[in-house]
């Protein structure tokens, strides 16, 4: 985990307040991941080309999104949505997913694809939790990159 000072080296350090904070505070939020480097408007200016990338490198990535019973490795996931279409729960609850279309925001789903990766939103709907772990493993079974691990 990098220190705030290290991060500040890659901020404009103008304390201009356009992000609503000072640069040091901003760095702190970067560490807790409540903000992302892109949230600093100044960094988008051509003068700071490359800084955003550098910050990301410094911060590293959360590779595994953990949720009880199911882990999706975002390093492997390509966001193809096969898991969304094949999920046993979606089959009965989301007509769009049945037809291969992406679910609507208001649809009842266990997980959906956001920014190119599968994200769990309602683990509790999973058949494995509702009934028993051995009842279903469709999502993992058909994932072409083996990004889903069930436990």
């Amino acid at each position: 985990m990098p220190a705030v000072e290290e991060i500040q080296e890659f901020l404009p350090n103008l304390d201009c307040g356009r992000c609503g904070l000072t640069c040091a505070e901003f760095a702190g939020f970067l560490l807790t991941r409540e903000l992302a480097p892109e949230d600093c408007p100044v960094l988008h200016e051509p003068d700071y080309a490359g800084f955003i990338e550098a910050l990301h490198e410094l911060l590293g990535q959360p590779t595994v999104q953990a949720a009880a019973g199911m882990q999706i490795d975002l390093e492997k996931c390509i966001g193809c949505g096969i898991c969304v279409a094949m999920c046993e729960f979606h089959l009965g609850n989301c007509a769009d997913a049945r037809l291969g279309k992406g679910p609507r925001p208001q649809d009842k789903v266990i997980f959906h694809i956001v920014n190119g990766g599968a994200v769990v939103v309602h683990q509790e709907r999973c058949t494995r939790l509702l009934q028993a772990a051995e009842k279903c493993s469709k999502c993992a079974e058909y994932c072409p990159t083996k990004a889903i691990v069930l436990f």
Binding site: A36, E38, H44, I52, E53, H56, E57, Q61, L74, C77, I78, G79, C80, G81, G102, P103, P105, H112, I113, V114, N115, G116, G117
Partner: peptide, 19 residues
């Protein structure tokens, strides 16, 4: 939402999750 990784790399000029 619903975009695959391939599309995201084009669509999101600034992305949060896959820098």
């Amino acid at each position: 939402a619903n975009i695959c990784l391939w599309g995201a790399s084009k669509f999101l000029a600034h992305k949060r999750f896959h820098p």
